[in-house]
Amino acid sequence: MQVAGAGGSPRVAIMTDETGWHTARLKQALAARGCEGRCVDLADCRIDTTWAWHGLVIPGYGRSLPDAVIVRGIAGGSFEQVTLRLGILHALRELGIPVYNDARAIERSVDKGMTSWLLHRAGIATPPTWVTESVPHAQRAVMREGAAGRALVLKPLFGSQGKGLQRVGAVDDTFRALPRLAPYRHVAYLQRFVPPPATPDPAAAHGFDWRVLVVGGHAVAAMRRFGSGWVHNIAQGARCEAAQVPLAVAALAVRAAAALGLDYAGVDLVPCTAAPEQAMVLEVNGVAAWRGLQSVTQCDIAGLLIDDLLGRKLSTQPQLAAGHAVPGGAA
């Protein structure tokens, strides 16, 4: 699929703080569809109201703008640095440039507390969750759940790849108290642990989770992840296998992505202990990696992402990238 961009081939900026396998796949998919893909670090972008009518400087695009933006990664930094980087994405959206996923959706998905709240608000099955700065309130939640024989998972509010996860409450017939919250930046995000369903398969003794990739409102690929322990992230050593998820699980993943307003998302779900054919949503990833999933599926994931961007986002957008004036603006 090809769309007409300003001055010829559509130019797509891939916002990333590091280049590698994912960016190479995206650039290949763009080239195969007659588009130009360029990697840009958001840290190198800036606001400059003297530069051009639109007030932004995007390296590699002179005084113009890209026709579309794919967000592949946003580097960590100070609160001010991250605010500026997200502000660039907000500004691009305000200028009519399709941003995939846009800053609003990314802000919702990187904040696990907001993700849980939005899922709950939308009536989507997700484990009970407590998010607080109050140590006494967090301790009471741990003690109350522990007294009922349940464990909670303590997670960093902003985090990925299974880093920093630990169980508290009733864990392996012992009580584990809430640890110091300084390593968690003084915020307790506590999610009720969902025990794995009983199974005779020793390879699945620790259970599994599903990663479902949702693109443009459709579940396009899925896998099951098995860990040597209760954490099932590939970055923590889990193995993955292709999976045909139940229709109800796929539909739940699609609803979760829609609840956060995401164009594409990696949705993590676990089977319900009482009803393994059903699931609960654990997390929704708005800047999802897909290398593990690509290794077990035949579909071209990068191609699916680019086709969705071009067909659903870019083809209907006014072309502003060449520096055309807008009403009230100066070229």
Rank of each mutant, 00 (worst) to 15 (best):
M1K: 13
G8C: 07
R11D: 01
A13Y: 07
E18I: 02
E18T: 08
E18D: 03
T23L: 04
A24G: 07
K27Q: 14
K27F: 00
A31Q: 14
R33V: 01
L42T: 03
A43K: 03
A52K: 05
W53H: 10
V57D: 00
G60A: 01
L65I: 08
G73M: 07
I74C: 04
S78V: 12
E80Q: 14
V82T: 14
L84R: 15
L86S: 12
L86D: 10
I88H: 02
A91W: 11
V99K: 06
N101E: 09
N101F: 01
D102V: 04
R104D: 15
R104Q: 14
R108T: 05
S109C: 15
V110C: 10
V110G: 03
V110L: 12
S116E: 06
L118A: 07
L119R: 10
R121Y: 09
P127A: 04
T129M: 11
A138I: 01
M143D: 13
R144E: 15
A151E: 03
G159C: 04
L165I: 10
G169L: 01
G169D: 02
R176I: 07
R176E: 06
R180H: 14
A182E: 14
P183Q: 11
H186G: 06
H186F: 08
A188T: 09
P197K: 06
G207I: 12
W210F: 13
L213C: 08
V214F: 04
V215W: 01
M223E: 14
M223R: 06
S228W: 01
Q236M: 11
G237P: 05
A238T: 01
C240G: 15
Q244H: 13
V245A: 14
A256L: 09
G261T: 02
G261N: 03
V267Y: 09
T273G: 00
A274N: 08
A279C: 04
G286N: 01
W290Y: 09
Q294A: 15
V296Q: 11
V296A: 11
I301T: 02
R312V: 10
K313P: 07
S315V: 15
A321Q: 13
G323K: 12
A325M: 09
A325P: 03
G328F: 12
G329Q: 13
A330E: 13
A331L: 09
